[in-house]
Design a protein around this nucleic acid. Structure first.
Lengths: 161, 161
DNA sequence: TCTAAAGTGTAATAGAATAACGTCCCCATG
DNA sequence: CATGGGGACGTTATTCTATTACACTTTAGA
């Protein structure tokens, strides 16, 4: 049995945010990347919860709460930077973005998304990616990127019945 | 080694279209569903190739080519019907739709999408879905739907280098 | 200090999907 | 035969998501 992920159980979420920001600082420092105030803030907002967040939700906070002049490109550029360096992931089936648990190494996770509480649990199971690579090999298909998004009910929301 | 899929090699595509439409007729007849002229036409358009097709591309053909009065809901309603009964699949990462090879039984395929020729090859490998179900079990997560979309280069486009 | 590149602001637009309402037509029932 | 109810489709408007193009500013490095 694996360790149950924080995402779908009560926890001190401030710690998640702090850690994510700290890891981002470290990663950017190490790679000579510029984690600007805007990018840092967008990352923080994406980490506001474990629920994938829409670009326009981020935009709304920047405008209304931060009083920052912001139009869509402002947000999308920040998100592009964060995506490119693995600090956030995009959930295609939701048109939304979620913070990455472990940005230290390049990867594309697998996401288990609860339709009830909307939490997105990220895993990185070689059993899944290997089975995909294996099927691809049978086709002679060269894999460049994998999107695995599973929707259903997390353990907590099942219990809450 | 599996049989190489038609999608990424030359073939008489008229046959694919005919067969898809015939299967749809059969399936709808058997289930008492109404495959109206519009739904049939949208299915035919989706099958125009093995490339996922956008809703607005379909819309354009209906308007310009068929001279049909059509607005987005016209297309989306037809697509919803076709999706609901497994005649087409939606590719979330492309916001596009592709015909289903084998609509006879309910399923959610796995898609291998070539970034060069844009063909989408549908597979249904239990090795992939089982590995997902297995990981879900470890989380206590109840799976209701799987999205597996792999992007890369198909065998044919690799050779074409 | 100067310059090139990267980052951000701004306006406009493209692309994807849905909401809400009205009309028509089929056909099952009386 | 009529009739009325539900499904399918037309229509208009709107919402949500994302990108293009260009201007201005900041930053790092020569």
């Amino acid at each position: 049995m694996t360790i149950p992920p924080l995402a779908c159980q009560p926890h001190d979420h401030r710690h998640c945010i702090e850690q994510a920001l700290a890891e981002a600082e470290t990663l950017c420092a190490r790679q000579g990347l510029r984690l600007t105030a805007l990018r840092r803030r967008v990352l923080e907002l994406v980490w506001q919860s474990h629920k994938p967040l829409g670009a326009y939700d981020i935009l709304a906070v920047l405008s209304e709460q931060d009083g920052r002049r912001a139009a869509p490109p402002t947000v999308y550029r920040a998100l592009d930077f964060l995506l490119e360096h693995g600090l956030v992931h995009r959930i295609a089936s939701l048109n939304a973005f979620v913070g990455c648990d472990h940005p230290a190494h390049a990867h594309q996770g697998q996401f288990f998304i609860c339709r009830q509480c909307h939490a997105a649990i990220e895993l990185e199971r070689s059993a899944i990616s290997d089975s995909i690579l294996d099927s691809a090999r049978g086709l002679g298909f060269r894999v460049e990127g994998q999107t695995v998004e599973v929707v259903g009910l997390c353990a907590r929301c099942q219990d809450a019945r």
